[in-house]
Amino acid sequence: MIKTISNLIVKMMPYKIAYAHCDIPCGIYDPHLAQLGAHTVLRMTQMLGEIKRENPPSHKASAGQSEIKAEHDVARMTHVKEEHGSLIEDELGTLENDYFKDEHFKQYPQLREIIADAVKLSAKTRQTIDMASAEELLEKVLQISEIFYKTKNLEPMRVKSPYPTEREIVVYK
């Protein structure tokens, strides 16, 4: 009980940031992989929703094989969805911890919340087959990408992606 209360107090107290810096600061950061991950999660969610499990009754002999193929496809698509969800979280973590600085968070006060929302949505899209969450995740990643380019003094713009998702990607002029 005392531990819970003290934990709560510590969580609410104001604090300064101390850095436990990782890696060599190479200065090479890009939101591209997070966007790629979000498109892939969206595509896998679409494809999982389109899997057909049954053959017509006249093809009973191959019905079992169809079922096995469907299970196989579900396993593969789920695996890819998991991997790319993880990629998004890694990439956003790198941007949040290594690239974005206090001045960026001050300049874009919504940034921290957008990143937190994106990470939560990434977890949700891994746990479910939910197109609305996948769409929302992509939107958050696009918003983060736009802020990223703005911090580089570049003008971001949304263009239609060449991917089967037929959604947008953020590039810069």
Partner: peptide
């Protein structure tokens, strides 16, 4: 002073 840690270089002792 209370500090919030950013980064992974002190893991596993102190996490991000």
């Amino acid at each position: 002073s209370l500090l919030g840690i950013k980064g992974h270089s002190m893991e596993p002792t102190i996490k991000n």
